[in-house]
Amino acid sequence: MKITVVCSLGLGSSFMIEMNVKELLQQYNIKGIEVEHVDIATANYLKSDIFICSSSIDFQHPHQESTVICLENLLDIEELELKLRQVIPKEVWK
């Protein structure tokens, strides 16, 4: 499974969100999920199961159906967990 975090330059905020995702995965001891962060132009050409972005970006993949999580508050780890729980299967969470 792959999670891609998207922001406009792919340098600043996407990196922070990626760190939060990784922290959650570690906290719940979830293995086998790959996380990376990129800019919007690159994200258009990536295959990923889940895309995460800020609600102001509202990323839509042009070529594939994929789950997109839009965050209202980029750093709110609770919001992130809540939204990730809706898309990552229940069995995975301990």
Partner: peptide
């Protein structure tokens, strides 16, 4: 306190 890039503020008032 983490000091982060500008877009963290953008969702507060687009």
């Amino acid at each position: 306190i983490p000091a982060l890039d500008t877009p963290i503020l953008f969702t507060y008032n687009p």
